[in-house]
Amino acid sequence: MSEQLETYFAVTQLHARYATVVDAKDWDAWCELFVDDCVYRIQPRENYERGFPLATLSFTSKGMLKDRAYGIRETLFHDPYYQRHVIGAPLILESSATHIDCESNYAVFRTKLSELSTVFNVGRYIDRIVRTPEGLRFQSRQCVYDSEMIPNSIIYPI
């Protein structure tokens, strides 16, 4: 049991770290929560459940994450906003010496300057986390979102 608790604790800390860095707009730290050969996808639930491969964003290397970080910082014009993640308790589906498969619900709130806070995107994370010498890292994070309409655009990572 203590090993399971340790895993559970480590996963919740990783999720908390993830929320902290993306809500703080620390895109470099966001990239470093992934291994080099990683997958990061934001996909409508509709595509996921109907077996359509299209994702709203689909990155298949840490390099692509870094390119997104560059885009956010340097090239993508957008109305500035804060985002705030609330991540539910992870359901650990499988845990081994090398990796952990888990899922958790999330809600992201968006606050534009001079505006009220609104629900921006809700869904679930489907994760494969790997144990590395530096601690837990995402090998794959899929954000499968229920939100039927994107309120105009998604700029920052979910």
């Binding site: 964003l57 689909s58 090239t75 957008h78 994107i150 105009n152 655009s153 700029i155």
Partner: peptide, 15 residues
């Protein structure tokens, strides 16, 4: 990835 509501070049059109 370049197009759509989060695309590297299309997200800013909506904005």
């Amino acid at each position: 990835n370049l197009f759509g509501p989060a695309g590297f070049v299309s997200a800013d059109d909506g904005e």
